[in-house]
């Protein structure tokens, strides 16, 4: 249970970190479209990866969320 709590906290911190990162010049440099990845502009491919990572984090969250312990009680 304690481990799950820790993993869940790590997931939350990672999700917040990804959100903050999105709004920095690292992802949205104003007026800059390079470097491209397979022809895709910079801000689009970086933010696409962030979106996928957020969904992956959500999946990991379902596995480590401490509330899943109480699932049996749930109707």
């Amino acid at each position: 249970m304690e481990k799950k709590r820790l993993y869940w906290k790590i997931c939350c911190i990672a999700a917040i970190f990804l959100c903050i990162l999105t709004f920095t010049p690292l992802v949205i440099p104003q007026g800059i479209a390079t470097p491209e990845l397979a022809g895709v502009p910079y801000s689009l491919w970086t933010s696409f990866i962030i979106t996928v990572l957020l969904v992956v984090l959500t999946y990991i969250g379902t596995r480590v969320h401490p509330g899943m312990q109480n699932e049996e009680e749930d109707v």
Binding site: L18, C19, S47, I50, V52, L54, V55, T58, G61, H65
Partner: peptide, 11 residues
């Protein structure tokens, strides 16, 4: 990206 964050919050 906002929807990605939203589904995490949904959890």
């Amino acid at each position: 990206v906002s929807d990605g964050a939203m589904v995490f919050l949904l959890l």
